[in-house]
Nucleic acid binder design. Structure first.
Lengths: 312, 312
DNA sequence: TAGAAAACATAGATAAAACTGATAATTGCC
DNA sequence: GGCAATTATCAGTTTTATCTATGTTTTCTA
């Protein structure tokens, strides 16, 4: 059994074709076929059902491939160990970011970061918290940027900054007359929410917890998948929605007029870097952290008198 | 990078000598030296300090080897996947057993098991619960036999049987006059205990919890490392100790006279097979389980009216 | 249903590699 | 300095991963 053989088998499984798998491995089709066959003979197992078109992985093949992937991933990590130890700023960094942060936070530092460390291959995925947590546990991500605390046993959280919640309301909303809003000012029947799965949604609900307990939860309005959609709905219809501070910063000045802060203590969310307990790439992650902290408004760094809202 | 190269490197690290490592890998010393050198060149890393005698692994080498071991262990598991899937009764089964079970439980089924499945390489370690839990999490054991519940997130418990606690007392002890004992009959100043780390100790303390709260815990007597020692102390000095039911069964008839059961509900400990969430060798483990259940007294299988004592 | 196309297997040749045994170089120790 | 032990180097052999070319089987289409 060789590493190359396992890579070939994984490629066949992925591409469902020997020829395409061969191409993806930069070898000819016979080479790959022979090696796959050899491995099958050594293990005394049929990995692929070649009678099916396209090629089907057998049940036992699937299990073996799953195990092989785990093993090869561990061996790949040897390179990370070396890069980290040598302080060489290179390698792959797989980053997961939640949708309510990614469009507002990433543009602030990404360009500078990839220019500064051109040898680093930054792979970014936008995922909801639940999926980031799963992928961190499955070692499919090196790092997550999400809202904490999570209380996950095997994950380590490093708080980055504290971002206030603000209220964005339609132009003709009576609350625009106030300078700051209080929780009681808000009528939850006018609130537009993100759909299930977003931590921001849970926090918005928690902020209005008192009212929600009283009223039926069924009265919540149409639920959207992105904050940008919510903003547009508020602009074109009636009502309000919550926004995180960073989302507000990129808005046109004219629209900012319809944003109101909360009275002290403002509700705030804690944004953290999250890694698995067995993480590598410490140096790389620290550089990313420094880069982020250098590019966000200074006042976000400290929580101050604001009040942390949890979501789990 | 090849699997063979990594095995060579691991062997050098273990044997602290290229020549001995080569022998253990069944190749000549130049072969091994060349492959190690090639790997060092490919990774651009010095793994061993050859100027030191014996050869020293470098700091970075140690980290790489640790990671390589993890990866190779995962790849080795491919064989387990196959054995399990094919229902082939072979392979290695690494079992950890706590000291208060191992001398009494293992003799009951071990001989039959290894005769029945000669292709299975059963490796047994006697360890306290804490170490078994760690080794299960680190994938250094396939299976543990210990006292549950543990409330460990990543471990799965399968109860095997329920074993009563009994009291073993010196020949001249007044309690020998009773047929059964009650918790209140026991004077904890006369109790001999296992030392820290044994779950059996914690359970013994929990059984006498009421008295212990009242008295100072400092008054506990000399603490021994094995139940056999405790038995001997009780025989030769004054006092009593707790024993698990199986430990009693192997005693001479004459000594059994100084054993007393508790009044209903008897205190009982739950003995379970414990595996990691990501366990393999399901079939093998099931066979071992059946073998154990076939060889223990039938009345242990059900808890009945007895009262479970926890220890964590 | 014949014929073309696609997909995988097989065969023979080749170049890279891994291995061996002998020998040289290095290091530690007396 | 010289001996013993250990690792590196060298030359020759064997193994094997790979390639190109070809064969076989299946699938799609006219």
């Amino acid at each position: 059994m060789t590493i190359v053989q396992l890579e070939y088998v994984i490629a066949v499984d992925r591409h469902r074709s020997f020829a395409r798998a061969a191409k993806s491995c930069f070898v000819t089709q016979p080479t790959l076929s022979m090696q796959v066959k050899k491995l099958e003979e050594e293990l005394n197992v049929i990995l692929f059902d070649r009678s099916k078109k396209p090629v089907m992985t057998t049940d036992i093949g699937r299990k073996i491939i799953a195990q092989a992937k785990i093993g090869l991933r561990s061996l790949k990590k040897i390179e990370d160990v070396i890069n980290d130890e040598k302080d060489e700023i290179k390698g792959e960094l797989r980053l997961g970011v939640i949708p309510t942060l990614s469009p507002y936070l990433l543009p602030l530092f990404i360009t500078d970061f990839i220019q500064k460390y051109p040898q680093v291959n930054l792979v970014i995925e936008e995922l909801i918290s639940e999926h980031i947590i799963k992928k961190l546990n499955d070692d499919e991500l090196d790092l997550g940027i999400l809202v904490t605390p999570l209380n996950e046993k095997n994950l380590i959280e490093t708080p980055l900054f504290y971002e206030s919640f603000v209220v964005y309301m339609s132009t003709n909303h009576p609350l625009t007359k106030k300078v700051k809003v209080a929780f009681d000012d808000l009528n939850i029947n006018e609130m537009w929410l993100l759909k299930e799965g977003h931590c921001f949604r849970n926090q918005a609900i928690n902020i209005c917890a008192d009212q929600l307990l009283a009223e039926s939860k069924n009265q919540l309005k149409f639920e959207s998948g992105s904050l940008e959609t919510l903003k547009r709905i508020v602009e074109n219809q009636y009502g309000f929605t919550f926004l995180p501070e960073l989302a507000m910063m990129t808005m046109e000045e004219i629209k900012k007029k319809y944003i109101r802060q909360f009275k002290t203590p403002e509700p705030v969310r804690e944004v953290s870097l999250v890694v698995h307990r067995s993480f590598l790439k410490e140096r790389l992650i620290n550089l990313l952290k420094d880069e982020i902290l250098d590019h966000i408004p200074v006042h976000l760094r400290e929580k101050g008198e604001r009040k942390l809202v949890e979501w789990v």
